[in-house]
Design a protein around this nucleic acid. Structure first.
Length: 289
DNA sequence: CGCCAGGGGAGCT
DNA sequence: AGCTCCCCTGGC
């Protein structure tokens, strides 16, 4: 068990930000944490997170957060996964003091982090995300993992399914994943798996590329367009200059940035701002048009 | 049952 | 760049 105390970190906000489709709120996790502490915080909630082969239970309590891993796992993996090395307060302080909208967005989403997720997993997740809603995306991914992922048991005895690697999906018929509820997106995922296994797409090479090159490489994949490529760059490769524009962001930009979003002012950290805006649009107070 | 939207993308012009 | 048309599932 590791207890961390970090500013600008909120599991709830990260969960709601929808970058990770294998993070869930859970009641069970609460039982695993010290009694008393778990219940007195109104915001206290447990989460379970599956990342690649790993499983983590996490519980936040005020400014503290408890993680069901040991110090070594925390230092070598989860610290980086949650991007706890970076100071998001400094990103927020970059915001134009005259930009009331963005200030409000950051005020609401103060605890969001840009996760550093596995590239393959993120690629598949966002291939599935197109023309799809978050609840169903979660179910799709859960189905794929249950069917094709390796069954594992956590140190605390919890069973879970790891995310299947590309080799586990490459042999499938293009429509095989319709059983997992992917619909027409099935062939995107299977083709991507084939491409990776054949060596046509080299994920580790893409992982070493800069933003522009990585994006260009991802765009070659069938089913990957502008928006999905940006999401992968941001949520897996941690290129913070990536700025995914989906329908929500597009609407928000039209409403609040008629002259366009000030990309130059936020050069290199646009992705962080995008997340504040996205979160604000989905979970913030709605205003009239 | 029909209709339509859900964090796009491909394939045209 | 801006259009169609496309695909599937779930909710109404």
């Amino acid at each position: 068990m590791v207890t961390i105390q970090t500013e600008n970190f909120s599991l709830e906000q990260i969960w709601q930000s929808g970058q990770c489709f294998r993070m869930n709120q859970t009641e069970k996790a609460v039982e695993n944490f010290p009694k008393g502490q778990a219940t007195d915080s109104g915001t206290g909630r447990g989460y379970e997170i599956i990342a690649g082969q790993r499983y983590l239970e996490a519980f936040s309590l005020g400014s503290k957060c408890m993680l069901s891993c040991n110090g070594e796992e925390y230092e070598s993996f989860w610290k980086g996964y949650f991007d706890l090395e970076n100071n998001y307060g400094s990103y927020i302080s970059c915001i134009d003091p005259e930009d009331e909208y963005l200030l409000s967005a950051a005020r609401l989403g103060w605890g969001i982090r840009i996760l550093k997720q596995d590239l393959w997993e993120t690629l598949v997740s966002f291939l599935i995300s197109q023309q799809n809603n978050i609840v169903r995306i979660r179910r799709c991914i859960s189905n794929i993992c249950n069917q094709y992922g390796e069954k594992k048991v956590s140190g605390r005895g919890k069973e879970y399914y790891a995310f299947p690697g590309p080799e586990a999906l490459a042999g499938l018929h293009e429509d095989a994943l319709m059983e997992c509820n992917l619909g027409y997106r099935s062939k995107y995922v299977v083709r991507a798996a084939k491409s990776v296994v054949s060596g046509e797409t080299d994920l580790s090479r893409i992982g070493g590329m800069g933003y522009q090159d990585a994006k260009a490489e991802l765009l070659k994949l069938f089913g990957v367009g502008e928006k999905v490529a940006e999401c992968i760059c941001l949520f897996a490769l941690h290129h913070l200059e990536a700025f995914p524009v989906d329908t929500h962001i597009s609407q928000a930009l039209g409403k609040h940035y008629k002259k366009g979003f000030p990309q130059k002012r936020y050069q290199g950290i646009q992705g962080v701002m995008q997340q504040y805006i996205f979160y604000y649009e989905l979970h913030g107070a709605r205003e009239k048009d």
